[in-house]
């Protein structure tokens, strides 16, 4: 059971520059004011009330926005709830304060990932893109179906062109994405 004293939030636990750090993390993809828009949240709860994920999980968008404002970094980046948003943008459209909620969530997830909080299942999806150029690669059964219905057995993508796959692989090295997910180039799999 949680003791009442454990619910006290102490000022020393807060990183009051958290939003600035998030903004910096995702620049220049998103401009600073998009992430800083979280500052405008006045906790009306339209987001939580609109959230299809919040209807069935403990995820509460409004709480997440408050934690971002306060700078409760660890609580946010180590939580499972951060990853319950399907990016449906319903809250984003309805927010009366114009908070770029989904952009802020993506920025926070980028920050969490860079701090090592990335699920194995997600690292696997990312690995497939590095290995094949596709998050969902082809298989033998689909090759057969493609032939049966008169399509080329292999689609004209990175699956067909080795040099195209090499381009994608060079880009992920340049952005450090391979390091982020812990990809082992020699073995062609995740490092752990």
């Amino acid at each position: 059971m949680v003791e009442p004293r454990d619910r006290v939030i102490r000022y020393e636990e807060l990183d009051t520059e958290f939003l600035e750090k998030l903004a910096e993390k995702v620049e220049p993809v998103f401009e600073e004011e998009e992430v800083l828009s979280v500052q405008a949240c006045y906790q009306c709860g339209t987001c939580t009330g609109s959230c299809p994920s919040g209807r069935r999980t403990a995820y509460r968008t409004r709480v997440l926005m408050r934690k971002l404002q306060m700078g409760l970094v660890d609580e946010v980046i180590k939580s499972d709830e951060l990853w319950m948003c399907t990016t449906c943008y319903t809250c984003y459209e309805r927010c009366p304060r114009g908070v770029k909620i989904v952009d802020a969530i993506k920025a926070t997830r980028n920050y969490a990932a860079s701090e090592g909080h990335m699920a194995k299942a997600h690292r696997m999806v990312a690995m497939f893109v590095i290995k094949t150029g596709h998050a969902v690669p082809i298989n033998d059964e689909i090759r057969e179906t493609r032939k049966e219905i008169g399509l080329d057995e292999v689609p004209p993508t990175t699956h067909r062109y080795e040099e195209a796959l090499e381009e994608v692989q060079k880009l992920v090295k340049l952005t450090g994405f391979d390091e982020l997910i812990g990809y082992d180039w020699e073995k062609g799999e995740l490092k752990d």
Partner: peptide, 14 residues
């Protein structure tokens, strides 16, 4: 959603 959540810089580059 998924790639943008990992690293937006890689997402936009690809």
């Amino acid at each position: 959603g998924v790639f943008g959540s990992f690293d937006l810089k890689t997402w936009v580059t690809i």
